[in-house]
Write a protein that binds this DNA or RNA. Structure first.
Lengths: 244, 244
DNA sequence: CGTACTATTGAATCGGGTCAACGTCTGTGG
DNA sequence: CCACAGACGTTGACCCGATTCAATAGTACG
């Protein structure tokens, strides 16, 4: 758990809009990082209400941020893929308002809380990058909020499939037979603000149209264009001409 | 429209968790700011898809961020109060994914896009503050997403009343006869992911219980505790014992 | 006073939730 | 090798919270 891995090869660096880092910056990051850690699928990385001072970068695997109501209703806020930052909100406000859970087995780089300010001071460009990451994550949450608030179930499901496939591809997890897809339908439902049952039925509807396949923990979009079209705009037409 | 106003007195500085700025920092900000600008109620500050390089701070008034679907369905992402930052996402990604609209007449401080990087470089502490602002805004959007995805209509309406009242008070807009409340029911509906009609009926329901009053552009919470309780948890009970 | 926006209310309808089974796959231990 | 448990997926029947439609009032303003 030390220099085995090289920060220069971190997936974080492949993020679009990211400036390439100088050797000095890389050296600082490498030093800033305290250790690397592995967490199993389904395990919590941060819990709601935590006052922990841990700060992570997701190096490999999938995770998600979520909030849960006292009676168990859960909302997934967004999914985290390699290169995403974890714990910025708790760093900023002292207490983590959301939970973070590993979806697959996960590898994390752990940083110290105090180090963050040091980072801003010594390498403003890295601070800028972190703002970029925060802003990018907010964009994704914005998108999910729009989806939850204003899209129909069919649009929602199509939307999440397209989005997740695109994100997975952008971090190099794509392939001819689709992407690795570790979500259960419960995860989809909790992300889309739908019930499990209705998520299942909607998923089946799209599947029956031949728009996608899900099997063996893999997702393959057979007609991304059509899915995209449905995702973007399938409110009105639904009434006049039902799918299936 | 220049040195008439003093950055040292900016509401931005009253944000909790904000470090107080040094004279040098204040001087830089004052210089960084290009001009102050006023925009009338209902006018757009940024439009969806804009590639503008403007960056603002909200000095006075209310605004909101929103996204709109091609058929007109609109989702309000969050409300902006004095001290909030506007345009960070477009700064970061080059294109503004959401619109920003003035709710009341508004006063803005305008900054140049290029200045932001300069700010990070010369005053890392200010860069840190901006990350804080971004993170804080994301927290609000997270909260709205939870509300839209998993709360009942009654919970949603109670929630937004409590939240907005609290925020307004935190920027010093509170008072014995309540807060200024410039939202129409359409705004509430678009923020909560509900229809206008149902928002109205739900609002009336709470009003009839004596929990709040809305009149003359003012909102007064008559029983914040009860509203808070409903907001936090009114899913199950709704079934067994209907309110009204 | 007319135009336009906002609030209000009832009636009919529907999308999605809830309930309840049942199927399927995997791992585990006897 | 099979019995069993537990997690996940699938499906039908029924119901309800929320939307839609439609019509009526304020209210602000030129």
């Amino acid at each position: 758990m030390s220099g085995a891995t090289d920060c220069a090869a971190c997936p974080l660096r492949s993020h679009a809009g990211f400036q390439s880092n100088s050797p000095a910056e890389l050296a600082f990051i490498q030093d800033f990082r305290e250790r690397e850690r592995s967490i199993g699928a389904g395990m919590p990385i941060l819990s709601e209400g935590d006052t922990s001072d841990r700060l992570f970068t997701l190096r490999a695997g999938w995770a998600f941020r979520h909030r849960t109501l006292p009676d168990g209703r859960r909302q997934i806020l967004n999914f985290l893929l390699p290169g995403d930052f974890i714990g910025l909100q708790s760093e900023i406000s002292g207490r983590c308002p959301h939970g973070v859970e590993a979806l697959t087995a996960v590898r994390l780089c752990e940083f110290s809380r105090d180090g963050l300010w040091e980072l801003y001071r010594r390498f403003p460009s890295l601070g800028y990058d972190i703002t970029w990451l925060a802003s990018h994550e907010e964009w994704i949450v914005d998108e999910n909020l729009l989806t939850n608030g204003r899209r129909s179930a069919l649009e929602r499901v199509a939307m999440i499939l397209v989005h997740l496939a695109r994100r997975a591809e952008s971090v190099g997890e794509g392939g001819p037979e689709g992407i690795v897809f570790p979500l259960t339908q419960q995860h989809l439902a909790d992300s889309l603000g739908l019930s499990l049952v209705h998520t299942n039925k909607t998923l089946k509807r799209l599947q029956a149209l031949g728009l996608h396949e899900m099997a063996g923990g893999r997702l393959r979009l057979r007609d991304p264009r059509a899915l995209q079209r449905i995702a973007e705009y399938y409110a009105q037409p639904l009434k006049s001409r039902p799918l299936i």
